[in-house]
Design a protein around this nucleic acid. Structure first.
Lengths: 210, 210
DNA sequence: GTCTATATACGGATAGAC
DNA sequence: GTCTATCCGTATATAGAC
């Protein structure tokens, strides 16, 4: 028996359903995922899904919240760490995201494509503005600008660049793999390279010019 | 009567259906879009959809192909232009993409999230490798590396960076707007800023050090 | 070409036995 | 808690009148 199957048996039924739902929702999105598929993937009966979670939608909201939490808040501890400079924070954000996304490459496209339809107004409810824009990271960036250490730029541009360079390759991976003729493993190797490169690139971008 | 409505009337039925399908598929994805919604949006009868396009799937493939074409191939003419340097090409790619995405912000997440399930193996069929990696743009980049003009780097990293910086903000726009407390218009203004900034940033990244 | 009415299948959810 | 059988709404697609 494979390890994977054994692990599945060791889980409680509820956990098996959650794991299956996580996998399928994240891979295919809400509308394209059928409750029957989840049941089959979990190796359980369809009726049990409703027994444990009442409805497809309830189950989805649970999974979605989990994903959002990981995707958005894994960086909060980094951006507010008193013991690191903004440069170190940039490196840590890139590393953390890339490591996370190598393990769960479908997460960002899932989160961002489900968000676009604003199913239950999830984003509106959260206060990213406070969490990000008032973070120590942003304050450190601003004070570096004021102290004439780096070239003046809207911190939002920097955030877009870090996320764009770290997250976008995973969203576009099918196309990028095709372009580069890369296997999954060589793609991942390239992403690991980027953990080192992104901080360097950001450093060059922010460098005070002549 | 509004211009928009008049334009709708002036279109043939087939065009109305295609326009409605384009809008809804791109906004909500294949599985979440109902043929009834398309019919209603087009202001026609449901039966006509099948009369003209035989099935939801056929209609989808048509729209998808259109989107792919725009999303991927609008840059081909730029990347093979004999009369521009690689620096000018970078600027043109950023400008072209950002202009396109301001007009059609849902396009990339639609294309990339539908691609992920590899519905009919669309990407596998296209030869991006030839189109991109053998483009003049890439050859110009490589020869600049060999000529010791810029810092050595895999051209794929550069492609990821250009696309990441230009395209990702649109994919993440709901979250980014929330973070920055931006309206649609101020978001677009920021994207227009990026048309100028991205080439500058790329220039700094590629700059020969030490 | 365009409509109404309908066939057919599918997917979410529940009833009820064990 | 877990299963089988089934209900019922919804979605795609078509038949057939006009």
């Amino acid at each position: 028996m494979k390890k994977e199957e054994k692990a599945k048996i060791d889980q409680s039924t509820e956990e098996k359903i959650k794991a299956a739902a996580y996998k399928l929702f994240t891979q295919k999105g809400y509308a394209a995922t059928k409750t029957r598929d989840i049941a089959e993937e979990a190796g359980i009966n369809l009726a049990l899904l409703n027994y444990y979670f009442r409805s497809k939608e309830k189950l989805f909201e649970l999974i979605m919240a989990d994903n959002m939490k990981q995707f958005m808040f894994s960086v909060v501890s980094i951006t507010n760490d008193d013991n690191t400079t903004y440069q170190e924070k940039i490196a840590l954000i890139a590393e953390t995201y890339i490591d996370m996304l190598i393990a769960q490459p479908d997460m960002p496209i899932f989160v961002l494509s489900e968000i676009r339809n604003d199913p239950s107004g999830l984003i509106k409810k959260m206060n990213f503005d406070d969490i990000i824009l008032r973070s120590l990271f942003i304050r450190q960036l601003k004070s570096a600008v004021e102290g004439n250490e780096i070239t003046p730029v809207d911190p939002l541009h920097i955030i877009m660049n870090i996320l764009g360079m770290a997250v976008f390759p995973f969203i576009g991976s099918p196309v990028l793999k095709k372009i580069g003729g890369m296997s999954d493993e060589s793609f991942n190797a390239m992403m690991r390279e980027r953990k080192k490169l992104i901080p360097l690139w950001l450093h060059e971008m922010l460098r005070k010019k002549g």
